[in-house]
Design a protein around this nucleic acid. Structure first.
Length: 461
RNA sequence: GAUCCCAUCGUCUAGAGGCCUAGGACACCUGGUUUUCAUCCAGGCAACCGGGGUUCGACUCCCCGUGGGAUCGCCA
């Protein structure tokens, strides 16, 4: 472990939306940097001009901002650094650590086929590795001159030491025939130039790492620390993908999840701090460390996300929650924050809401403009209660000087006694009449929040 | 096929040789509170992949097997 400053990066390729897997490695990188007062840098890996799309890039940046993963300095675009990469290629060509290759795609396909047929790993046969004659005309690629023997050890911070035989590694392409550099090469150059101290990424990159280490050594670069985190799986234990449902961070945002809940859920997936389940963002930053990462892949469970979302909603300031609901989920509950009775109602709604999108339906009955009663529901639930009882209740309420939840409910009890009815018979009718549904917060809370006039008015069928 | 990785309740995980009769959380089930639903509270169900070692002693260490995954592109 070096004592140089901690600098981490998230390096998405704008060829798709930010998915939960990518988000998690971003979270780990972000947390490590913040924990150690280091830097967290964003690098857009858009060297694949064909597949890279501006829409994806802005989608990714939006999701990052939403999650609260603020990065330091402006994002770096690899597409603007081709000259830099090419100059390093020239250096390597000159130093003899890379070489030109004129093999055509057809020839390569034939090689692969032949190797596979013999039960071997498909590899380039290195036919131009020591080529010295006159250079053929036509397009060429540049390949890295991988050592023919020896081994490369990856000292991974989460996986431990992993040893690779160099002979297993191909003379891979670092510059395409269209003069653009490839991923494995640009990563090495950028991580070096950006002084990245910790490379944190998905473990689908483990097999790329020895290639990168070899190039770093060939270029005389110091190695960064590596941490490869396990993949996130779907319920069927296969790599999480679209067919498992929502995979994009933005989809979760739309579905009404809180960024902190998302952060908490993703962090807890593959990382732990004893038995602690709930983490505020500050705690995440102060407690995160790579040694808490597990080695095995994990299944993403939406039920747990639901639970955490509820927990984080409860932990929020009411004002903050109201603003969020009003600005992003079209539900304005700001009037509920005025007065004790309605604040109690608001808290009751938070208790039962799982997602931010739930508040709309949960609170609909409270507002006259969205209050609806379904005749069928009324017919089947109110008829058991004699009209006379409801009339009596109306009189009781009208005469109730202090219409608190307790007093208003006491009226129900009084009427029940007078009319020789069971309380639930009346209470059920009242609930349906006042809220239009069979399930609502506690009657006392509902009555107090509604107030005498509205309660009395709604008692009429 | 080759290389590499992984393996504790259904799921996320704690566990770094004796503290484990394996703990917590989610989900699920039961009871209580709420004379509704939800919440909340109490309780319950439920796991160390298999086989060999090492050791006085293995969930923990080693080997083999089995299972799962990743990677083998002029994608990243």
């Amino acid at each position: 472990m070096s004592n140089r400053p901690i600098i981490t990066r998230f390096a998405p390729s704008p060829t798709g939306m930010l998915h939960v897997g990518g988000a998690r490695t971003a979270i780990f990188s972000y947390l490590l940097a913040r924990r150690h007062n280091g830097k967290f840098i964003l690098r857009i890996e858009d060297t694949d001009v064909e597949r890279s799309k501006k829409e994806f890039e802005s989608e990714i940046l939006d999701s990052m901002k939403w999650l609260g993963l603020d990065w330091d300095a402006d994002p770096i675009y690899q597409s603007q650094r081709f000259d830099v990469y090419r100059s390093y290629i020239q250096k390597m060509l000159k130093a003899g650590t890379a070489y030109k290759c004129w093999a055509t795609p057809e020839e390569l396909a034939a090689m692969r086929e032949k190797a596979t047929a013999h039960g071997k790993k498909p590899m380039y046969d290195r036919r131009y590795r020591n080529f010295t004659g006159t250079e053929p005309s036509g397009s060429f690629v540049v390949r890295f001159k991988t050592p023919l023997d020896g081994e490369t050890i990856l000292k991974d911070l989460v996986k431990g030491d992993i040893c690779f035989q160099n002979q297993e590694i191909d003379d891979f392409i670092i510059l395409r025939s269209d003069n653009t550099p490839t991923y494995n090469f640009t990563v090495v150059i950028d991580d070096y130039e950006m002084k990245i101290s910790h490379v944190i990424r998905g473990d689908d990159h483990v097999n790329n790492t020895p290639k990168q280490i070899l190039m770093m050594q060939a270029l005389g670069f110091d190695l960064p620390e590596f941490a490869h985190v396990p993949m996130i799986l779907g319920p069927d234990k296969a790599k999480l993908s679209k067919r498992h449902g929502a995979v994009a961070v933005s989809q979760y945002r739309e579905q009404g999840y809180l960024p902190t809940a998302m952060l908490n859920a993703l962090l807890r997936l593959g990382w732990s701090h004893g038995d602690q389940e709930f983490f505020s963002k500050d705690q995440m930053i102060s407690l995160f460390d790579l040694s808490g990462c597990g080695k095995s892949p994990s299944v993403f469970d939406v039920a747990k996300l639901d639970h955490l979302n509820n927990q984080h909603m409860k932990a929020m300031d009411r004002e903050e929650l109201v603003n969020l609901l009003r600005n992003n989920y079209g539900t304005d509950l700001s009037t509920l924050l005025n007065g004790d009775a309605s604040i109690k109602l608001f808290d009751a709604l938070v208790e039962r809401a799982v997602r931010l999108t739930d508040f709309k339906d949960l609170s609909a009955w409270y507002f006259e403009e969205s209050f609806v009663r379904d005749q069928k529901t009324i017919d089947s639930n109110v008829s058991a209660c004699p009209a006379a009882a409801l009339e009596a209740l109306k009189v009781q309420w009208q005469g109730c000087a202090d219409f608190t939840g307790e007093n208003a409910f006491a009226c129900i009890k009084t009427v029940a006694t007078e009319q020789a009815l069971k309380i639930p018979v009346i209470a059920k009718a009242v609930r349906v009449l006042l809220t239009g549904t069979l399930a609502s917060p506690d009657m006392g809370i509902v009555l107090a929040a509604l107030g005498k006039d509205r309660a009395v008015e709604r008692l009429s069928i």
